[in-house]
């Protein structure tokens, strides 16, 4: 069975626009993933509709803030909190912001440093 599984790079100014378009077209959030790269983060937002899956790839600098998509997709709050907490991605205005209290861990942002 053929189905989409693509990764598309996107810039910050088009990002929210694209997320809203996904919502209008009936996609739902599958997963949000942060990856630590040199000097910043790589955020992957995967959206699914039926058997198709499209991933938006957003590159952000370390101190850059990212708008939260929970205003559009409310149920993404757990995964956004996770990215913020483990990697230290600065995500603004999460609908249900745990403010670093989602995981009971002894170190702040343990996934930020490599190794």
């Amino acid at each position: 069975m053929e189905f989409l599984n693509t990764i598309e790079e996107i810039s910050m100014d088009k990002f929210m626009q694209e997320v809203i378009r996904f919502k209008m077209e009936g996609w739902h959030v599958i997963q949000i993933c942060a990856v630590r790269v040199d000097g910043g983060y790589e955020l992957s937002y995967s959206f699914g509709r039926d058997y198709d899956m499209r991933t938006l790839r957003l590159k952000v600098a370390e101190d850059e803030t990212v708008p939260s998509i929970t205003q559009v997709f409310h149920t993404a709050y757990l995964q956004e909190n996770e990215a913020a907490e483990l990697f230290g991605v600065k995500i603004e205005n999460i609908d249900l912001d745990f403010k670093g209290k989602l995981y009971r861990i002894s170190r702040e942002t343990p996934f930020k440093e490599k190794g």
Partner: peptide, 28 residues
């Protein structure tokens, strides 16, 4: 469940991400 692997050509992998079914099911 969603599995994501980002590998960089060495024997150590950069990132492994596992989005489990429960993560998606808790908000509903």
């Amino acid at each position: 469940a969603i599995y994501y692997v980002k590998a960089n050509g060495t024997k150590y992998i950069d990132r492994f991400r596992l989005r489990t079914p429960t993560t998606s099911n808790i908000p509903p």
